[in-house]
Design a protein around this nucleic acid. Structure first.
Lengths: 118, 118
DNA sequence: CAGATAGTTAGGAGATGACCTAACTAATAT
DNA sequence: ATATTAGTTAGGTCATCTCCTAACTATCTG
């Protein structure tokens, strides 16, 4: 009930896509609005095919979509694509905090025992 | 101004560390408490040196620390290690939601939040 | 139509990643 | 003291990642 589990490889794709500075920069740009491939390429000192590769990888991970109109390919952020990442992080925190809570209980109980015992 | 920027490669290391299912599984285990290398290895059908490599990578990314006591190396989650990841995601969302004007306040609030282990 | 523009395909170099086995050191148990 | 346990080091294989150049297609513009 706590989580909806998605395909295991999806998180891999997402995290791996985010693990590259160029791709994160592309996403940061796209957070401000859609852009053509050339617009995306402009800030980088990188050959077009290399940048295209990044865009393809972002698309394969589901973070981005693109449509071609005439000779221009427009790339767009996918709404909610980060959700699985956020969910995983939240889950980890929940587990961690659950552990802390249990530890807290333990310490509380321990201190109560001491009061009783002394 | 708006953000406290951490070393550029740090996010790379973090996201890349998270981009592997074995490493995420290790983290999930560690969220429940520290464990020895062998304990970590137990659930996996993987040679020890391979698993050790994952632990090393987690340690290099700052997600985990380990100490050796006798012949046992105990691995532990690093508190707050996920924070840069969360911050990046939150920033993206803030930009995407067109809240650039309030980003400063947002980050201030975020840093004031309790540091937890998520 | 000619030329410029936007993107794509093909192929390859070089680095890194994820795994393995074999052989080793160091600590502990018998 | 010897055997067992826990981890480490060394080295090798195979796949993937990131980047490049060269050459190509398709779409506008003049």
């Amino acid at each position: 009930m706590t989580t909806m589990n998605l395909s295991p490889g999806q998180l891999d794709l997402l995290f791996q896509a985010l693990g590259d500075p160029t791709r994160r920069a592309i996403l940061e740009r796209l957070a401000r609005g859609p852009a053509s491939v050339s617009e995306l390429a402009a800030p980088f000192d990188m050959a077009l095919p290399s940048l295209m590769g990044h865009v393809r990888r972002l698309e394969e991970s589901g973070l981005v979509t693109s449509t071609k109109d005439g000779r221009i390919r427009t790339v767009q952020l996918v709404t909610g694509a980060f959700t699985p990442v956020r969910s995983w992080l939240d889950e980890q925190r929940a587990i961690w905090e659950g552990r802390l809570d249990r530890l807290d209980d333990y310490v509380t109980r321990l201190m109560k025992d001491r009061e009783d015992g002394s």
